[in-house]
Simulated assay, not measured.
Amino acid sequence: MEPHFLNKSDYDQMVQSGAAFGRQFHKDDPVLDMVDEKILKRGRNRAAPGAWCSGWKGWWMDPCSQWGDANILKPGPQAKKFDESITNLLDDWSSQSNQCK
């Protein structure tokens, strides 16, 4: 069987799945730009924004053009989905290991 390469037609399903990771993608596939723009809120040729961005956001200004403390971690909206996914995995694993064999 040939592997399925994710593309634009898979985007909605990828988002709804809540999965933290995805594979396989063709190099430079447009769906990667969609993930950057819509999920990571990352502009073209720019870093993904985070709590370390200390600049002002404006029409011509990228807030990530100035960096503050790069060690600051502040979860964004996708982190909540990731937390829920990991919690569900751990709960499933825990319930399986507590079953009688």
Rank of each mutant, 00 (worst) to 15 (best):
residue 45 N to E: 12
residue 4 H to L: 10
residue 42 R to N: 09
residue 4 H to I: 11
residue 51 A to R: 08
residue 41 K to N: 12
residue 68 G to I: 02
residue 89 L to H: 14
residue 30 P to D: 00
residue 35 V to F: 15
residue 72 I to R: 14
residue 69 D to F: 04
residue 86 I to L: 14
residue 93 W to H: 02
residue 72 I to W: 08
residue 9 S to P: 01
residue 99 Q to I: 00
residue 94 S to V: 02
residue 29 D to M: 05
residue 5 F to V: 05
residue 66 Q to N: 03
residue 98 N to F: 00
residue 33 D to N: 07
residue 11 Y to E: 06
residue 81 K to S: 15
residue 11 Y to F: 15
residue 12 D to H: 08
residue 50 G to M: 05
residue 58 G to I: 03
residue 87 T to I: 12
residue 97 S to N: 03
residue 64 C to M: 09
residue 44 R to Q: 13
residue 21 F to K: 08
residue 92 D to G: 01
residue 94 S to C: 03
residue 60 W to E: 03
residue 3 P to G: 04
residue 25 F to E: 07
residue 52 W to P: 01
residue 11 Y to T: 13
residue 80 K to V: 12
residue 87 T to C: 05
residue 32 L to N: 13
residue 90 L to T: 02
residue 81 K to T: 13
residue 98 N to T: 01
residue 76 G to S: 11
residue 13 Q to N: 08
residue 85 S to N: 07
residue 47 A to F: 06
residue 98 N to D: 01
residue 61 M to Q: 08
residue 54 S to F: 06
residue 22 G to Y: 11
residue 15 V to C: 10
residue 56 W to M: 06
residue 60 W to C: 09
residue 70 A to Y: 05
residue 76 G to T: 05
residue 95 S to D: 00
residue 90 L to H: 02
residue 38 K to T: 09
residue 3 P to L: 15
residue 5 F to I: 04
residue 50 G to D: 09
residue 91 D to M: 07
residue 9 S to M: 03
residue 81 K to P: 03
residue 85 S to G: 08
residue 85 S to H: 07
residue 69 D to Y: 04
residue 47 A to S: 11
residue 73 L to E: 11
residue 27 K to E: 04
residue 65 S to G: 04
residue 42 R to D: 05
residue 83 D to P: 00
residue 99 Q to V: 01
residue 61 M to H: 08
residue 44 R to V: 13
residue 27 K to G: 02
residue 45 N to V: 03
residue 92 D to Q: 04
residue 84 E to A: 15
residue 81 K to Q: 14
residue 42 R to W: 02
residue 19 A to Y: 09
residue 11 Y to S: 09
residue 10 D to M: 03
residue 56 W to P: 03
residue 14 M to Y: 09
